[in-house]
Structures are given as structure tokens and as C-alpha cells.
Amino acid sequence: MWEYTDKVKEHFLNPRNVGEVENPDGAATVGSLACGDALKLTFKLDENGRIKDARFKTFGCASAIASASALTEMIKGKTVEEAAKITNQDIANYLGGLPEEKMHCSVMGREALEAAIAHYRGEPAPTEEGQIICECFGVTEEEIARVVKENNLRTIEEVTNYTKAGGGCGNCHEAIQEIIDRVRSQGKVVTRPKLSNIQKIKMIEETIDREIRPALQQDGGDLELIDVVGNRVLVATRGACASCAASHLTLKQVVEAKLRELVWPELEVEEVTS
């Protein structure tokens, strides 16, 4: 059972400002049914440009409901500029803290607020931009970088707690680590020339075809490149290799060594069953 604060429980059991504002000035929905939580936020301004009414609807767990309820209370009476300064940490603090694993609920609150403000200003929603890093939960590079920076995150697990990124299949863990490293080095320029992903995949394919496959095929085996995720080269063994107990050693000592020599020194070969 999660350790929720009394304030989280109270906002969960008696949520404030449930519903939708009619003719809202700002409105946004973030999250999705597939992800397991979603938040629809609407607000209306008074004649002085202050948020006079804010309402929410949430599909989600207790802390998602409490975070949304808290958010509506926090922004009421504020100008849009003041509201825009609210961070996910502010939402969590308002509730007396959230369990680490549930911090993504506070991030969802902040995202909904930003998207609703963007809607009010006629701008595109900020989270729609950028390259998707986590395919399972649709989290972009920009979102991850921002949460890492704002919450001083250090590990992939923390990023998962705050954004859900990396909490599904795990294929993006390396990419998340790279973002953490980049943000934490605060823009220190990495000097070594970097291959683009496409260049890397091409070179790996060529090397396997030219240097590795002919030797394996002589022994009745084969190797298929399944995917390249960051520096992880995922391959499947075929034919005689698939049932050969020593194929693991071959992969490490021959295939990986060759790829490291000819393509990129940090590559790691992993066998997947397919």
C-alpha cells in the first residue's frame, strides 16, 4: 500500500472543483486511457485577468485525483503569468509530498496547466513537440530533460517515477541515461565525434554481412540483426547457432569484438529470442 499523506487522502476522498468550466478561456487534456491516467483541466479568467474558476476531471489513481484537485486550488486567484510558474514540486509540496513512485501525478498536473495556458495563449501545447524517447508512454526528450533539471534527478528509476518514461518495455533506458548525463553535465560539450543512429545501424549491418556472417554460415549458423537501441545491438541467432551452447561466447568474443573494433567502441551485443 502506498504511504499517502493525510492531505493526499483528503483531496482524494473530497476532491475540490470537479467538472468542467463552461466556455473556458484555457482548456487541455493530457495523458490517456492507455497510460492509466489522464487529466482534463479548464479555467476561466475574470476581468482583471485572474483565474476565477478552475475545474478538473481525472481518470487515475488516488494521487492523480489529489494532484489535480490541489492544482485547481493552487491556481485560483492567480494571474496566468503567476500560475505558469507553478512546478510539479509545488503541487507535491502542497499535498505534503507524494510517494516517489507517484511523482508523475504531479508532473501530469503541471503539464495540464501548461497545456491549458498554451491553449489560452493560442500556442501549441508544449508536450507535443520533440522526439519521443519512451514509446510505451509517449514521453519526449524535452519532457525528460526538463523534469531531470527541475527535480535534480540522477537515475533512470527516478525519471520513471516522475514521467513514467522507461516504465514499460525498458528499451529507452539507455536514451534516458544519455539525457540525464547531458542535463547533469549542463551543456558541457562532448568532444568525440558521434555517429547518428542511422549511420551506426548501417555500419553494424555492413560489418555483420562482411565480417561475421560468412564465418557463421560455414558452420551452418546465422545471425540476424533485430534492432539497435543506443549502444545495445540486439541480435538473434539462427540455424546451428540457435541451439549451440557456445553461441553466447561467440557473440561476445567475436561479434561484439568485431563491432567494437570497426563501428563504435561502446557497443554491446545482446541476444534476443524471437
Binding site: 487522502k9 482524494f12 476522498l13 481518470f59 487515475g60 489513481c61 488516488a62
Partner: peptide, 14 residues
Amino acid sequence: EFVEGEAILLRLDE
């Protein structure tokens, strides 16, 4: 449909 399990459990817990 359309509600989340944890929320149901915590309401039942009450």
C-alpha cells in the same frame, strides 16, 4: 470501465 483500480480500492478501504 473508465475508472482506475487503485482509486476503487482506496475508496473500498474506507
